[in-house]
Amino acid sequence: MIQTIAQKFTGRRSTLRAAEHRFIVIALVPTIIFYAIVKFYPIFFSFFISMHEWSLFGNVSPYVGFDNYALLAKDSLFYKVMWNTMYRTFAGTFLGAFCSLIVALILNPIKRGSILLRLIYFLPVMTSVIASATIWKWMLQTRFGLLNQLLSYVGIQPVAWLQSTTWAMPSIIVMGIWGGIGFTVIIYLAGLKGIPKDYYEAAEIDGASSIQLALKITLPLLKPVVSFVLITGVIGGFSGGFQAIYMMTGGGPLDSTRVLALHIYDYAFQRMFMGQASSMSFVLFAIVLILTLVQFKLQRVDWEL
């Protein structure tokens, strides 16, 4: 014991510091190089591409300045894409947050079977979206799909869910909610855990009903969690939806489900307009950046938490 303390205060100490120093350098230098090449350089490169008429074919990529952005501003398809993206984002986020809140509120007081229930609600989260979109496409099939077959029992005529400009987007939104609800529920449950039980006990003594408890105690105290779910949902929504839509409608019918992520992929890798696609990805980047700043402003996210 004395020996180790002695060592600490004599010569050994400086060698230890050198070892720590070396350890940090060995770990950080490759990391920083990696981030520079794979995470930061591509952003500038992407902006560079968006300033050119860039195609994989042919070696000439003329500089066009901000023309790609100007084209977007005049492109009615792009406005439609933005509208679809917002429709999917806001409807999906708000409905999903609402459904998950209900589930979390009624799941919270349950003890027996709670793990099993949570697992069931979490199953779609673990499933690849490609696979679940395949299942949903089959269930929503017009003639033989399960949904229309079940609806025929109550006398509803078959609906061409994914071939209808009215129903395709709602179908995709519902599938998205199904796929994400388990995740949001877990976030809410964590938030609910943070509400002190005394509040409820005090209110119960005063004779408050369970609905009053939910409205007067739970919801106000859960507000930060709800707004976190909504804002992260909206931020994620703008860049999301690719896999489900790629599998289920491919953006159709008549571009009614064409969202930004799919549009960027389509322009870059199907039509090979990489410059134009890059300018769209920068629009997306700008939107996400603004929303994130709004989030910081609203929530003053404490990273040290």
Binding site: I43, F45, S46, A261, Y265, A268, S278, S281, V288, L289
Partner: peptide, 13 residues
């Protein structure tokens, strides 16, 4: 915070 779509094209190239 950067969406993967921003990386898609430059990383591919």
């Amino acid at each position: 915070i950067i969406p993967f779509e921003v990386y898609l094209i430059p990383l591919y190239l």
